[in-house]
């Protein structure tokens, strides 16, 4: 595969976290296990461990984000990092400073780790190829390519509820074409030996040759949901109505919206997930979103532990067991 191992150091440990593709099952499992050791931190009076004490993390968001950015920031704070968060006005960088100049100026401020979201596919690899040795890059979403921490928190959620992947049928529903989340999820699910990964979307939102990623394709939501154990709904961007990708939100909901009735086709104990932010009444009915099968809010809280896990593995510590005693840095 052309995906080289820029993400790993010579000992096979995480150096950057750019894409699920290129990693192996052992690393994904280690991330999930490490995240497990961090979930208890949130329940403490003092929600901090000193794993990133003395380290500086820059959150560089070239694209708007609420949830991803805030869970990264919380994860960094709970690991006791110093934090610099920048919403970069992309038009300003286009006009003046080049991307690399922005990055190098920040590097000059002794940043140890960059969390970057950028609208170009491949930007995370690009930054990782150009940072100084010892500086790490975490991909918080690059164009339509990957969003690996989101996929890992989804895997964490699935494992939390379903324990083992090998017997699972998982359906990913919606705008697969534009979704970096879907790409990362598909790689992660396959690496974790999921029995079947289905993608369900209208043809205009289905990437060409998507079956080459190891999924089966469904044009029909009702058929695609049959007997699945996990339903992952994707956000439908409103701008997809322009450019002739879809006729209307109403028709989309009629064909691909997740209703209580349709959910009945899935396994009775199926869980419903959504990376957020959701459009109620467009891709998902409110009663499903707030229903007992929905684990959407749990996903968000697991997101903090998973991001803590990835960052601590990058600085060479696998979870709390090998770290210094918690709570020292309040």
């Amino acid at each position: 595969m052309p995906n080289s191992n820029i993400q790993l150091d010579d000992n096979g440990r995480l150096r950057h976290f750019l894409s699920i593709e290129g990693l192996d099952q052992a690393i994904l499992t280690e991330i999930l296990d490490t995240a497990g050791s961090f979930t208890s931190v949130a329940d403490r009076t003092i929600k901090k461990v000193p794993i990133l004490r003395g380290k500086t993390v820059a959150n560089l968001f070239f694209e708007a984000s609420t949830r991803t950015r805030s869970t990264f920031e919380l994860a960094e704070q709970r690991l006791s990092a110093d934090i610099l968060s920048l919403n970069v006005d992309t038009s300003a960088t286009v006009k003046g400073e080049s991307l690399l100049d922005t990055l190098q100026n920040l590097e000059a401020m002794q940043i140890d780790m960059f969390v970057i979201r950028h609208q170009d596919s491949g930007s995370a690899h690009f930054f990782a190829q150009h940072v100084r040795p010892g500086v790490s890059v975490l991909n918080a979403g690059d164009g339509q390519h990957e969003h690996p921490t989101q996929a890992m928190l989804d895997m964490y959620t699935i494992r939390h509820y379903k324990r083992d992947f090998s017997g699972l049928r998982v359906a990913i529903v919606g705008d697969i074409l534009h979704s970096r989340v879907a790409r990362s999820q598909i790689h992660a699910l396959n690496l974790l030996n999921t029995a079947e990964v289905r993608v369900i979307a209208p043809r205009t939102l289905m990437p060409v040759a998507v079956e080459s990623l190891g999924v089966s394709i469904y044009d029909d939501l009702e058929k695609g949901l049959a007997d699945v154990d996990v339903v992952i709904m994707l956000r439908l961007q409103r701008e997809r109505m322009r450019g002739a990708l879809l006729p209307s939100e109403k028709e989309y909901f009629r064909k691909f919206g997740l209703s209580q009735e349709r959910l009945q086709r899935a396994s009775p104990d199926a869980i419903v997930m959504h990376p957020g932010p959701a459009n109620r009444g467009v891709e998902i009915e409110s009663s499903v979103m707030d229903g007992k099968q929905s684990v959407i809010l749990q996903q968000v809280s697991f997101g903090i532990s998973v991001r803590m896990a990835v960052m601590s593995m990058i600085v060479g510590q696998s979870g709390l067991s090998s770290g210094p005693q918690p709570g020292g840095d309040a």
Partner: peptide, 15 residues
């Protein structure tokens, strides 16, 4: 090119 590689890399594709 619109095909498996662009799909995997999430690159806007040209049919």
């Amino acid at each position: 090119h619109e095909g498996a590689i662009a799909t995997r890399l999430g690159l806007p594709s040209i049919p």
